[in-house]
């Protein structure tokens, strides 16, 4: 029962903060709302036995990435946006498409299984599911190659960021 209560609380805060992200005028406020969403999700991760992911969600996402966001927001010091939303038909189409997409997603998620067989009962969780040790083992055995490729991706990103920041473009 405690899980249900916690889930409900996290879900509500996450959605509420999410709406704040897209409708607050001040970019700093938007960023702080995003931090709220990230924290709520981190809570849900714990409920789903993903303790390690929850931890790096807070450390990396809410910590490092969001600091970067805030840093840029304050560096650019954009004056209050007027108007807030895109002018013209693009805005209307945006809302419309998003609504259709949402309905379709709901349809897919909530539609009765149909002729499909009911999902098999969840297998009992192995001990240490979602722990750093288990993640690390999977990451350095099965997923070693993608893991190494990721390091190259990050290197490229670092170089790209440096080059973009140093030269004059656009």
């Amino acid at each position: 029962m405690a899980e249900v209560i916690l889930f409900t609380a996290f879900a509500l805060t996450a959605v509420a903060f999410a709406l704040g992200v897209i409708f607050r005028r001040n970019a700093v406020h938007c960023a702080l709302h995003l931090v709220g969403v990230l924290l709520s999700l981190s809570g849900m991760f714990v409920l789903l036995n993903a303790q390690f992911i929850a931890a790096i969600q807070i450390l990396v996402y809410a910590g490092a990435i969001m600091v970067l966001f805030l840093f840029v927001v304050m560096l650019l010091n954009v004056k209050g946006e007027t108007p807030l939303l895109t002018p013209g038909a693009a805005k209307g189409f945006g809302f419309l498409f998003a609504l259709i997409a949402f309905v379709e997603l709901l349809w897919i998620v909530l539609a009765p299984g149909g002729e499909e067989v009911a999902p098999p009962p969840a297998p009992p969780l192995v001990p240490g599911f979602g722990s750093p040790a288990a993640i690390g083992r999977a990451l350095y055995t099965t997923w070693l190659f993608p893991f190494e490729v990721t390091s190259i991706l990050l290197l490229v990103a670092v170089i790209g960021a440096v080059v973009l920041a140093k030269r004059k473009f656009f």
Partner: peptide
């Protein structure tokens, strides 16, 4: 495009 694909899936 995504909407169309999702519609097809749904």
């Amino acid at each position: 495009g995504a909407v169309v694909v999702l519609g097809y899936l749904a």
